[in-house]
Amino acid sequence: MTPFPHLAQRLFNVPIAIHPQKAEVVMAALADRLGIASMFRGGELISLKPQAFDDEEIGGPSSRSGRRERDQGYDLVGGIAVIHVTGTLVQKLGTLRPYSGMTGYDGIRLALLAAMQDPDVLAIAFDIDSPGGEVAGCFDLVDVVYRLRGEKPMWAILDENAFSAAYALASACDRITVPRTGGTGSVGVIGMHVDLSQALGKAGITVTMIRHGEHKAEGNPYEPLGKDALGRMQADIDTMGELFIDTVARNRGLKASEVRATKAGTFLGDAGLRAGFADVVSSPGAAFRALLNTL
């Protein structure tokens, strides 16, 4: 059975913390695979990037040989556990590492907890390049990272971007480094409602919703979204957006009003420093070397 309808349920008609442009890309890619390509235009699949830290920058080929006989979800490089966070972030992926353009909060959590218990791990580096993803599971993971901060040094090393849910994760770390061409921010939540009613009608298909309870199946894709339903969905988005703002403000030592004033904007390179969203502009390799030098 194809996994795309299941993935669509996790991205459409639910709140997500993702960069809007990537949301359009994901919607277009899924639309094509769900047989509704005529509703959308363009798009590309999100691909998994290779490791960010090349051998020359961090000190020779031995630096990359970090996998153990039993994979715990991170690479051990010079005493640093490197946890890769790439592609779209989802609540449950069922793997310790990124897979098929996605990273699971479940895998990140297990890798982090294992690294914290590993006596060979002296510090943790989150290698991040992600537009964000699901709200579900995001803030629980961020709170875990925040609570563990101080036990071992934790740096978010961006290669290239940490937007939305990915930035929430980065903000919980001790230090955030961003490349000159990398981005931070997009502290906001969006929802995408898919209305298939007209398309189904043109295809000669009628879906009748039989419900008990006025709000049951509210926001389903087979009926136009009513004004009251839109209002309730907007209220949920606003609640989660304020949670996002408060979380980033706590993590970064900023005022909530300062984070809110960014209006979910994104910041390139050193603009992120001025916004308080990053600590230093640095290439991933140079940032990793700097973390090594602190040990």
Rank of each mutant, 00 (worst) to 15 (best):
R10A: 10
F40R: 07
P61G: 07
L30Q: 06
E24N: 14
L30P: 08
G43Q: 13
E44K: 12
T2E: 10
G42W: 04
P20K: 07
R68A: 15
N13K: 03
I36D: 11
H84V: 12
D55C: 04
G73F: 12
D71K: 04
L7P: 00
P20M: 07
S38I: 01
T2R: 08
R64F: 04
H19E: 14
I18A: 05
L34V: 12
G35H: 11
K92T: 14
S65Y: 12
P20L: 08
G94A: 09
K22N: 13
K92D: 10
R33T: 10
L11Y: 11
R64G: 05
M27I: 13
D75H: 03
I18G: 03
I36G: 02
S38L: 03
D32F: 10
P50F: 01
L76R: 01
M27K: 14
R68C: 01
L45S: 05
L76P: 13
I46L: 13
D54R: 01
L93E: 05
D54Q: 06
G66K: 09
E24V: 10
N13W: 04
A29K: 02
R41T: 14
A37H: 11
G59H: 06
T86P: 00
V14P: 08
G42M: 04
V85K: 07
Q91K: 13
G87I: 09
Q21D: 15
S63Y: 07
L45A: 09
T88K: 07
A81E: 02
V14M: 05
L45P: 00
K22S: 15
G87S: 09
P15V: 03
R64Q: 14
D71I: 08
A8S: 12
G66M: 11
I46C: 04
Q9E: 13
Q91S: 14
V85F: 09
E44W: 11
K22H: 13
D55G: 02
E57Q: 13
H84Q: 13
I83W: 06
V82A: 12
P50K: 06
H19N: 12
I36K: 01
A81Y: 00
M39Q: 02
K49I: 02
D55P: 01
D55S: 10
I18P: 01
R33Q: 15
A17Y: 02
S47W: 03
S38G: 08
M39T: 00
V26T: 10
V90S: 07
P20E: 12
Q91A: 14
F40G: 00
P5Y: 02
G42A: 09
F12E: 01
H84Y: 05
L45T: 07
S47Y: 04
V82T: 09
P3H: 02
V90M: 12
R67V: 10
I80R: 07
A28W: 01
F4I: 11
T88V: 15
R41L: 09
N13P: 06
T95I: 05
P61N: 05
F53V: 08
R41E: 08
E57M: 08
D71R: 04
T88H: 11
A52C: 04
V26M: 15
P61D: 09
H6T: 08
R64E: 03
L11D: 03
P20V: 04
L89G: 10
P15H: 03
L11E: 06
V26N: 02
D71W: 08
Y74E: 01
R33N: 14
R64A: 13
A29P: 00
R70Y: 11
P5E: 02
S47L: 10
Q91P: 00
H84L: 03
